[in-house]
Design a protein around this nucleic acid. Structure first.
Length: 410
DNA sequence: TCTGGGGTCCTAGGACCC
DNA sequence: TCTGGGGTCCTAGGACCC
C-alpha cells in the first residue's frame, strides 16, 4: 500500500444535460431549461434557473410544468451529451492519464503523480481543469479535491454549483461528520430512512452508533460503510475501470395504460429486436432473457429464463420472450410499462451454430434487417415475427398466473 | 405531483453436485 | 436411520446511481 498524501479530484458537470442545451443554443442561457421527454416522463436535468422554482431531476414532467410553466422543455439529445462528455474527459486527460470515467457527466482524476510535471499545487491544477472545461465547452463543472475518492465526491457535493472545494485531510472528518448520512454514496432514501428511525442523522451519528446495530442493519456492507464514513477509502483511480458490460436492457412506458395485449406485445417485441441488434453489432450473445411488466398501479413483475446455449437471433429471443410475456402478464390489469433485458453475455455464437444449421440463416436475415434499419430507421422494416396476429395469447386466469411456479427449463 | 431509462450490485432460497 | 457442509447456478426482487 502506498503511503503519503494523495490528491484525488472528482469532477462533476453541473446540470449536465441542461447545460449542454444552453451551450448549443445560447439563446437559452439565463432561462429555466428542463430536459426530459414525454408527458409521462420525469426530469432528467434542470438548469439552476429552473431549480429556483423547485424543479429537480427525477420529478415528474407534469409537476415541473406546474412549478415552472414558462420553462423551456427539451427532449434529450444523447448524441450531443456524449460528445460533450468525451470532450470533458479529454481535457482532464491532458493533465494526467489517471482519469476514471464513472458516468457521462462525472469522473475522477488522480493528480498525485503529476504535481511535479505541472509545477503547481494540486489545488491550482484542479482550478485549471475546471476553467478549461468552462472555456472550451461553455458549461460549468464543479470539483472536489481530497485524499480519497469518497472524500473528493462528497466535497464536490458541497462545492456545487460551479465551485471547487479542497477537503484537507486534517479537517476532513470534522467537515464530513456534520453531513447527513444520505450524502454518503450508497446510502439512498431507504437506508437513510432506516437510520433516521434509529436517530442516526449525520455521519458523526453513524460513527458514534454501536457497531452491532450497524451490523444488524446493513449486514456485510456495514464494514465498508463505516470505513467510508470515517474517511478511509483506499480505492484508487483506475483508468478504463469500467469493466465489461453485463447486460442490455430497454424499458418503455406506454403513452396510456392499456390492456391491449397485442399492442403491448408489439412494443415488447420491438424493444427486444433493438436489443438483439445491439448484441449483434457488438459481436455478443446472451443466455438469459428477462421480461418485466409494470401495471397501472405501479406493481411490478419480472420473469427470466436462462437458455442452455447463448443466442443472438431475433427468432430465438422473441420465442422465449413471448413465452415469458404470455405467462407473466395478468389479463385483468392495465399495463403501464414493459421492459426487456438480455444478460449472461458471451462472445459470438459461431461454435454452437455447428449444431444448429438453421441459425446462421436467421442471423443473416437479422443482419440484413439491422442494416436497412440503420439507414432508414427502425420503422423501415416490419419483421413479421413482431407483428401482432402471429402470436396467440392464452386465455388464462390471473389467480393461476400468480401461482404458477417458475418454469424449470425453456 | 403522479412517478423514465440505462445500468450495477446484493441477497435469499432452492436445486444440484461433490 | 439420521445427518453434514460447501460451492455454484438459477430466479426474483430490491436498493442504488446518474
Amino acid at each position: 500500500m502506498k503511503t503519503g498524501i494523495r490528491y484525488i479530484l472528482h469532477v462533476d458537470a453541473d446540470a449536465f444535460f441542461a447545460s449542454v442545451e444552453q451551450a448549443i443554443h445560447p439563446e437559452l442561457k439565463g432561462l429555466p431549461v428542463i430536459v426530459g421527454g414525454g408527458d409521462r416522463g420525469v426530469v432528467s436535468a434542470a438548469s439552476y434557473e429552473a431549480r429556483r422554482f423547485g424543479v429537480h431531476s427525477a420529478m415528474p414532467i407534469a409537476q415541473a410544468q406546474k412549478l415552472c410553466p414558462h420553462a423551456v422543455f427539451r427532449d434529450p439529445d444523447f448524441h450531443a451529451y456524449t460528445d460533450f462528455s468525451r470532450r470533458m474527459f479529454d481535457i482532464m486527460r491532458n493533465f494526467s492519464p489517471a482519469v476514471e470515467v464513472t458516468s457521462v457527466d462525472e469522473g475522477y482524476i488522480d493528480l498525485t503523480g503529476t504535481l511535479k510535471l505541472h509545477k503547481a499545487p494540486a489545488w491550482e491544477i484542479a482550478h485549471r481543469i475546471l476553467s478549461e472545461i468552462r472555456a472550451d465547452l461553455d458549461i460549468n463543472a464543479s470539483g472536489g479535491l481530497a485524499g480519497t475518492r469518497t472524500g473528493a465526491k462528497m466535497a464536490t457535493g458541497l462545492a456545487k454549483p460551479n465551485g471547487l472545494l479542497y477537503l484537507e485531510p486534517a479537517r476532513s472528518s470534522q467537515i464530513l461528520n456534520g453531513l447527513p448520512v444520505g450524502s454518503i454514496p450508497g446510502i439512498g432514501k431507504k437506508s437513510e430512512g432506516i437510520l433516521k428511525r434509529h436517530r442516526i442523522l449525520t455521519i458523526g451519528d453513524l460513527l458514534a452508533a454501536p457497531k452491532p446495530l450497524i451490523k444488524r442493519l446493513f449486514g456485510r456492507w456495514s464494514d465498508r460503510l463505516l470505513e467510508i464514513a470515517s474517511g478511509n477509502d483506499s480505492r484508487v483511480v483506475t483508468p478504463d475501470s469500467r469493466g465489461e458490460r453485463k447486460s442490455y436492457s430497454k424499458d418503455r412506458t406506454l403513452e396510456q395504460d392499456t390492456g391491449d395485449l397485442a399492442y403491448v406485445w408489439s412494443v415488447t417485441a420491438g424493444l427486444a429486436e433493438k436489443l438483439a441488434a445491439r448484441l449483434r453489432r457488438d459481436g455478443k450473445s446472451a443466455r438469459t432473457i428477462t421480461f418485466k411488466v409494470r401495471y397501472a398501479d405501479f406493481t411490478e413483475k419480472g420473469r427470466s429464463v436462462s437458455l442452455k446455449t447463448s443466442t443472438d437471433t431475433n427468432r430465438e429471443i422473441l420465442a422465449v420472450l413471448f413465452k415469458l410475456f404470455n405467462e407473466t402478464v395478468l389479463r385483468r390489469k392495465k399495463i403501464r410499462q414493459v421492459g426487456v433485458k438480455l444478460s449472461g453475455l458471451g462472445g459470438p455464437v459461431f461454435q454452437t451454430d455447428l449444431f444448429d444449421p438453421v441459425r446462421p440463416i436467421y442471423r443473416d436475415r437479422d443482419r440484413t434487417v439491422d442494416k436497412i434499419r440503420k439507414r432508414f430507421g427502425f420503422q423501415a422494416v416490419r419483421v413479421s415475427s413482431s407483428a401482432p396476429g402471429n402470436w396467440r395469447f392464452d386465455e388464462r386466469d390471473d389467480e393461476a398466473t400468480k401461482r404458477r411456479p417458475t418454469p424449470k427449463h425453456c
